[in-house]
Amino acid sequence: MRRVAVGVIGAGKHGQRYLAHLREVPELAAAAVSRRDATRGREDAARLGCRFHADWRSLVADPAVEAVVAVVPPALHPAVTDAVAAARKPLLIEKPLATTGAAAAGIVRVLRAAAVPCLMAHTLRWNAVVRAIRTHLPAIGTLRAVVLNQRFEPSPLAWLDDPSMSGGGILLHTGVHCFDLVRLLTGCEVTDVFCRTARVRTVRTEDNFAAVLRLAGSDTVVAVSGCRATRGRSG
Rank of each mutant, 00 (worst) to 15 (best):
A31Y: 05
R204H: 15
V176G: 00
W126H: 11
Q16P: 00
E43H: 06
S234W: 12
K95T: 10
V33R: 02
V80H: 08
A5I: 05
T191K: 06
R51N: 04
V190T: 08
P90W: 02
L184I: 01
S218L: 07
A86S: 09
R112P: 02
V222A: 03
R109A: 15
L97W: 01
G232N: 05
A211P: 10
T230Y: 11
V6D: 05
A113P: 02
A64Q: 12
A79R: 10
D161I: 04
T174G: 00
S218H: 07
T186V: 09
R47C: 03
L97G: 03
A102Q: 12
V221N: 02
L184T: 00
T123Q: 14
V221R: 12
L160M: 14
R233L: 08
G167C: 05
A70T: 06
E66V: 02
T197L: 10
R17C: 05
R196D: 15
W159G: 00
V200N: 10
D55N: 12
V190I: 15
G169E: 04
A211E: 05
T142W: 02
T197Q: 12
A54D: 14
G235Q: 00
H21I: 04
A75L: 10
V190H: 01
C227Q: 14
G217S: 04
V25M: 08
G10F: 11
S225M: 05
T99E: 09
R196E: 15
P78N: 06
P117S: 04
V69F: 02
F209W: 09
E94G: 13
T135G: 03
G49P: 06
P90I: 06
H177A: 02
C50M: 05
V221H: 09
P96N: 02
R47S: 14
G175V: 00
V130W: 02
A210H: 06
T230F: 12
S218G: 08
Y18W: 11
G175K: 04
R17L: 12
G169S: 03
E66T: 03
E94L: 11
R196F: 08
A79Y: 01
R228G: 14
A87S: 03
V68T: 09
V69M: 06
C50Y: 01
G141T: 01
L22E: 00
V6K: 04
H53N: 08
T142E: 15
P90H: 04
R144Q: 14
R183T: 15
I140L: 15
L97A: 04
L97C: 04
G10L: 10
V212H: 12
A210T: 13
G101K: 07
V203T: 15
A29R: 15
R233F: 14
A103H: 07
L185G: 01
D55E: 13
M1A: 10
R109W: 01
V84W: 00
G12F: 09
A5P: 07
Y18G: 04
R204W: 06
A11G: 01
V212K: 10
V25N: 09
T191W: 04
A31W: 06
V129C: 08
R17A: 12
V6L: 07
